[in-house]
Design a protein around this nucleic acid. Structure first.
Lengths: 103, 103
DNA sequence: CGCTCGTATTCCTTGACGGAAATATTTCCC
DNA sequence: GGGAAATATTTCCGTCAAGGAATACGAGCG
């Protein structure tokens, strides 16, 4: 699981990041918010931590996770040229004209 | 393979999209540019087509693929709140202070 | 200092995906 | 229409990631 894009491709992991936009959350809070077992969530948290997308801090018996959005820039960078493209091109029209087969 | 993010998580598929930034390309040209068998490329092209990221047009015996970046907006939209976050927060500092264990 | 709550780790099963080879299909040229 | 070139589809296999159950670990409270 090298790239950030692969990491956030997983829907549950995106959900976790979304949650952390609200601020620090304990592992337990995250477990409660997801339709997943505690070990399942813990594993995803590890993946996110390894990718540098979250940091952990221990407070009392809790592990508090905090968002660290920096690595997401990588996606933004990759996206940039396409963003230019979708501003210039009129996609809807093109697809209507091009699509002579499909499905 | 529902979401656009899952589709572009695959490195070869990203490579194909990058290629198409230069303009229309035939399937053959794309095969030549990738370290993959022809069927492999064809399968990826199908995934991209199903995701609405490319359109196909037949010219002579060639199938010409064209970029259709519109659906990538979905990623941009998801990214937006995090983009705000990484502008406000000073990630490097935080990680330095928070990380008391790891690895 | 032992117990318990919170969380991480291991182990296993399962399903999905990527890749190659072989084959089918389509389209044009003669 | 026959054949060849371009591309799609099918089949099969290997790998890898995700999920759950059970288990281990660790920190703080009593």
């Amino acid at each position: 699981m090298t790239g950030v894009l692969e990491v956030v491709a997983e829907p549950h992991r995106r959900r976790i990041l979304d949650l952390l936009l609200e601020g620090e959350k304990s592992a337990g809070e995250i477990v409660a918010a997801l339709p997943l077992s505690q070990p399942g969530v813990s594993k995803h948290l590890k993946v996110l931590k390894d990718a540098g997308l979250v940091t952990v801090r221990q407070q009392a018996r809790l592990r508090l996770y905090r968002l660290r959005p920096g690595p997401l820039r990588e996606i933004d960078v990759w996206l940039a040229p396409f963003r230019d493209a979708w501003n210039e091109r009129l996609d809807a029209l093109e697809s209507h004209l091009d699509t002579m087969e499909e499905t």
